[in-house]
Design a protein around this nucleic acid. Structure first.
Lengths: 235, 235
DNA sequence: GCAAAAGTGTTGATGGTACACCCATGG
DNA sequence: CCATGGGTGTACCATCAACACTTTTGC
């Protein structure tokens, strides 16, 4: 608590839940804490809000750039929820505003100035070893994953996990991995090509990997899906 | 600014967007500010978070009880979003965690200890006179209404606007008013009675208001709607 | 040709809309 | 009886899951 004079009585933090798909699994970006409390444990990247003129959305974007080297306009970033249980940080009262980011699988570390040991951890693994996570971050991760899962249903966000050009198979695998559910490739194809503005054909074709080469697409202008693509597990 | 010594450099507020249906309109609970800034303007009820051991959800519930006299377990209360633009409060940096509450139309003031002038204001009126609202509260109200609108689609939340017992007509009017859209009474009836756990019949019937008396229902155990009841305006 | 993946056509089930029709009450 | 709102039946249409089938590549 020697640093408590530097931080207001109720401190405000901004934490990031950054998701990607890697090796057929949903992964989350975690850092290893170097200091107490929870030294050595895995935690969401984040930091305290400075009291200057920085907007909280901008603070989240800045943290994201520091961790990944990516600008917020290159990927999806949205506010998830604010967590403020009284003793979630044993040092003092901390209220943390959490953000959800989705990005394609890019190499890490991405040359950010902040060279803390950020690593991709499969979400399943992180959530099955809750004791290794700092603070209430297991709960935050679970909320982030659930938000991502449900957003795939009625928005075009799945494309945020893909690179700039992708095949319909790539997109289907995003859905299958995030939902842990297999989808019929033929019906999926029809469904996504039927939504206006979801996908823009590039005209090119992907290198074949054993069969007929797939058409390549970019993400289209649509942001919501009409009709939605619904999960099975719902009822 | 005489009280600024009591508030940390970055202050945390909890604000409430309390919605109800009154006189066939969606209404929001607003207070008239007595002090600068924005003295005399309408604002969302709320207050600063104390740095003691109060959870932020509990702080929202306490504010709600002070304004309406109702306990949080009697009505729906959920976190909406956190707003933290740098100059949203001209005095100092304030980050506000906003909550959305839905309640049936009950008389106000509800005998809370805090006798500030809380009043119901039709949402349309509030949003068409944005200049009369304090801070960024017009934006918050718009977000709250949009959240309520979309939650009616896939949750059973519409019952939160009704009293403990209600008719299917009452429920339909909730949808019609919140969505500003008229629905076919016959198809609506079939739809809601077809969702398992949405409605529990009481066995009683309402006093007639000109026609056959309607069956009375309580809210059932279901919290999500399968299938959803979708708005028209979507595509 | 054969395997493998992409993409199309078809069919039967399901859920939605529109609307005709019957039910129960007050006046 | 009539007016009024509550509630059911039904016909038609859109969407969807399931799966047979065709297309396009590598080997």
């Amino acid at each position: 608590m020697t640093e408590s004079w530097r931080i207001p009585t109720v401190a405000i933090a901004v934490d990031l839940a950054v998701l990607t798909i890697r090796a057929d699994q949903l992964n989350i970006l975690l850092v290893t804490r170097g200091v107490e409390p929870y030294a050595g444990r895995l935690a969401l990247p984040g930091g305290f809000l400075s009291s200057d003129d920085e907007d909280i959305d901008a603070a989240a974007a800045r943290e994201l750039a520091e961790e990944t080297g990516l600008s917020a306009k290159d990927l999806h970033l949205e506010q998830l929820r604010t967590y403020g249980a009284p003793r979630r940080d044993p040092r003092q009262r901390v209220v943390t505003i959490c953000y959800l980011a989705l990005m394609p699988d890019l190499p890490l570390p991405l040359g950010g100035g902040d060279a803390r040991a950020a690593q991709w951890v499969p979400v399943d693994k992180a959530l099955s070893r809750k004791r290794q996570l700092a603070f209430d971050h297991a709960k935050i991760i679970a909320d982030a994953v659930e938000r991502a899962r449900s957003k795939l249903e009625y928005t075009t966000l799945a494309t945020a996990f893909c690179g700039p050009v992708f095949t319909i198979s790539d997109l289907r695998q995003v859905y299958e991995i995030v939902w842990s559910e297999s989808l019929d490739p033929r019906n999926f194809h029809r469904k996504v090509t039927g939504v206006d503005g979801f996908l823009t054909p590039t005209g090119d074709r992907a290198a074949t990997n054993g069969g007929r080469p797939a058409a390549l697409y970019r993400r289209g202008p649509a942001r919501t899906l009409h009709p939605p693509i619904l999960r099975d597990g719902n009822p």
